[in-house]
Each structure stands twice: as C-alpha cells, then as structure tokens.
C-alpha cells in the first residue's frame, strides 16, 4: 500500500496536469456562493463573488495547491472574458433608447462624472504617495470588471488589486448613493439608477434593480457608457501624464 502523503502528491500531480481541477473548484465555489448568498437574504456588503473568492482562497491555501497552479488552470475560464466583454454590447444596445428620455443630463454628466470617478481616487492615492502600479490598478475602479481588467492590463497595473478595488467601490457606491440621494432629496429613479451604474458598475446595477426596473435600466446604461468612455479615454489620458 502507498503512503497517504505520497498518494496525495501523486493525485495532485495528476489532477493539476490539466486545468480540470481549477475549473471544478471555481465552478463549485460559484454554485455554492450563489446558494449561500440567497440563504443569507442577499446581503449588500457581501456579493456572491466575494463569497466564492473567500472559499477558493481557503481551499487553495489549505490544500497546498498554491495560487500559481490554480491560476494556470483557471485561465481556461478567464480567457472567456474577451468575448464576454463583447457580449456587454447587446444589453448596452438594448438600453440605448433610454438616452432619448434624458439625453441632456446624460450627455453633460457622463464625461464629467466618469472622469471624476477615476480622478478623485487617483488624486487622493497620488497625494498619499502611491506607486504607479497602484495608481494604474485603481484607475478603472468604477468600471465593470471585464472592461476594467482590460484597462488595467493596458496600463500595467495588477489585475487582482483592480478587482479588489472594484468590489470595495461597488459596495460603497451602493451605500453612498442611498445616503446622498436622501440628503440631496432626489427621488427620480432614473437619476438614482444612473448614478448607481456609473459609480458602482455591476454591483451598483444589481442594487438598482432592487429599487425598480427603471432604476435598473438606467444603471445598466450608466455602467455601459462609463465602461466605454473610461476604456477609450483613460489609457490615452495616462499616456499624457
């Protein structure tokens, strides 16, 4: 009979020869996180992606699989982010007619607000002495994940740091839009939705759909337009500085 540790090592080397172990772990964590999220009554501060990532991190650390080996296999999944980004064009097209309803506020707000969403955080981080890599990772903080990952790669930042920043931003934006709209006495669901999508990407958009369908539609629009605007102008702006 073979030693248990030896058997474990042999098993690991077979399983990590291809990407299937990473794929199985990621799929399992994704499904378990969706289930847990519903059971916990959809907490705003704990989106499913955070639950899934925590579970995976624990498994990777405890089994000795290691992040590098996990990531190599998981690349078979992340490679699909390219076509998935293209897929975002379909809902964006389906929301475009909303622009007609509020075209002036959208036209005025979008370039200013989307630029400021990046500029405020970058300015603060720069004043606090952040390295160029940290700045490049924080720049797309209000952009939906697949687009943001592309921006960070173009700017030379850390994709993982960007995704961490995105999570924090999305959760914060949902809370802050709630507070600020009450304080500013804004009751128009279209404005609240647009602000949620513009600042809080997919997490803010999910929150907007809980408010109303109109808020959700305008959040999708705000998220899509911010993503396109930031992806087109941020790398060019970075070249100038």
């Amino acid at each position: 009979m073979v030693d248990q540790p030896e058997m474990f090592t042999a098993l690991m080397s077979v399983w990590t020869a291809g990407p299937m172990l990473s794929i199985a772990l990621t799929l399992g964590a994704f499904i378990a996180a969706q289930w847990l999220f519903t059971r916990l009554k959809r907490p705003l501060w704990m989106p499913p992606v955070m639950i899934a990532a925590l579970m995976l991190a624990a498994v990777i650390a405890l089994t000795g699989l290691g992040f590098d080996r996990y990531e190599q296999g998981a690349r078979w999944l992340t490679i699909l982010l390219g076509p998935a980004t293209v897929a975002l064009g379909v809902p964006l097209y389906q929301q475009v007619h909303h622009i007609r309803a509020l075209w002036l506020p959208i036209l005025v707000t979008l370039p200013v607000a989307a630029s400021l969403a990046a500029a405020y955080a970058l300015g603060i981080a720069w004043l606090m002495g952040a390295t160029p890599e940290v700045l490049a990772s924080l720049a797309p903080k209000s952009v939906t994940a697949p687009i943001a990952m592309g921006i960070t790669e173009e700017l030379g930042g850390s994709v993982s740091l960007t995704l961490g920043g995105l999570l924090i931003t999305g959760v914060l934006a949902s809370l802050f839009v709630d507070w600020c709209s009450k304080w500013l006495k804004i009751t128009d669901d279209r404005i609240i939705g647009f602000a949620l999508g513009l600042n809080g990407h997919a997490i803010g958009t999910a929150r907007a759909f809980e408010i109303s369908h109109t808020a959700g539609a305008f959040a999708s629009l705000g998220m899509g337009l911010t993503g396109v605007f930031t992806a087109l102008f941020l790398p060019l702006a970075f070249l100038l500085f």
């Binding site: 992606v49 995704l163 961490g164």
Partner: peptide
C-alpha cells in the same frame, strides 16, 4: 469568469 482574478487579491 472574474472569480479567479478576485481570488488573487
């Protein structure tokens, strides 16, 4: 699809 990247954090 974005989960592996988030795990990296």
């Amino acid at each position: 699809l974005i989960t592996p990247g988030v795990v990296g954090v």
